[in-house]
């Protein structure tokens, strides 16, 4: 175990030295990987921010159901029964016209108007919370057909539209991540292939004097993983720089609307995931590249 650790440590140091020895070509490959990864990362960050904004405005999946003015107690209890039976209803609350009027009167803005009312113009109403927001549409459709129901209002229509937009965005981010992750594998495959070509003799000699494929593969795997990791870090920096400049404008805008808002970068967990993801893809690209080369040697 100690021997294994010591070998890996030495290979790691040697690989870092190798990267440092060719700073320009390392820098360029890292930049290319960084740019490729910054696109899905940036998309993800923007979506996360949009979602957190949406969450502050979001109301629960709620429907307001207004009874007809001439609805009797019997009609109201009929609706109540139906709501109790409906499996997509999470819970509901009855707001009687008296309660509604009282609230209306308490609201300072309208207290003058309310005081002058001769009769109560407000209907009985139910506030219904659905279990899932995607059921709202069909629920309101059914409720409109119920007897003595005057009006059904979806309170969170725009939130659901935003939700589906965000879902679309998330799918797009995943596709971007898949495509550009594949690009990372190919980029690494190629840089490692070039590296292998410069070390062809070393590989041949090492094999001739008893090196296993694992031994030959190891430094290249480290190189690929480190390059991927550095590319992930570059993507993080690109996104952070982009957010910094965007936030300059957003702060200005937020002040005009007298709110406080700034775009947030990836949190700790997400950043670590990004680094892990990019390192693994780099490792994979390197593995494919060396394995292909070794396979070509062995099959001679």
């Amino acid at each position: 175990m100690m021997a294994w650790l010591s070998i890996n440590f030495h290979v790691l140091i040697a690989t870092l030295k190798k990267l440092a020895k060719a700073p320009f070509s390392s820098f360029f490959s890292i930049c290319v990987i960084g740019l490729a990864l910054s696109l899905p990362t940036g998309t993800y960050v923007l979506l996360e921010n949009l979602e957190s904004v949406a969450r502050t405005f979001a109301s629960p999946p709620q429907i307001s159901l207004f009874m007809a003015k001439d609805a009797s107690h019997v009609d109201v209890s009929e609706i109540e029964k139906r709501l109790k039976r409906d499996p997509s209803v999470d819970h509901f609350r009855f707001v009687s016209k008296e309660e509604a009027l009282k609230r209306f009167q308490q609201d300072s803005e309208f207290s003058d108007v309310a005081a002058n009312l001769a009769t109560n113009p407000l209907p009985d109403a139910f506030v219904v919370l659905a279990k899932q927001s995607r059921d709202l549409e069909s629920m309101s459709g059914t409720m409109k057909g119920w007897p003595k129901v005057e009006h059904v209002q979806l309170d969170s229509d725009w939130v659901r539209k935003l939700d589906s937009f965000l879902n679309l965005g998330r799918t797009a981010a995943v596709i971007l991540a898949a495509v550009l992750g594949a690009a990372l594998v190919f980029i690494t495959f190629n840089t490692i292939r070039l590296q292998i070509l410069t070390q062809k003799d070393e590989i041949e000699v090492a094999k001739l004097i008893g090196a296993t494929n694992t031994f030959i593969r190891r430094p290249f795997l480290y190189l690929g993983a480190l390059q991927g990791l550095a590319g992930g870090a570059a993507a993080w920096l690109i996104v952070a720089a982009g957010l910094y400049f965007l936030n300059g404008g957003i702060l200005e805008l937020a002040r005009l609307y007298s709110t406080k808002f700034a775009l947030a970068n990836l949190d700790m967990r997400e950043s670590l995931l990004l680094f892990l993801f990019s390192a693994c893809l780099g490792w994979l690209g390197a593995w494919l590249s060396v394995t292909r080369h070794l396979w070509q040697i062995d099959s001679v």
């Binding site: 003799d201 041949e204 000699v205 094999k207 001739l208 004097i209 008893g210 090196a211 296993t212 031994f215």
Partner: peptide
């Protein structure tokens, strides 16, 4: 590889 470790190989073209 393990066979080759048991042998010492000297090559005509050195392979250094």
């Amino acid at each position: 590889p393990y066979l080759r470790r048991k042998l010492g190989l000297v090559f005509q073209d050195h392979k250094l």
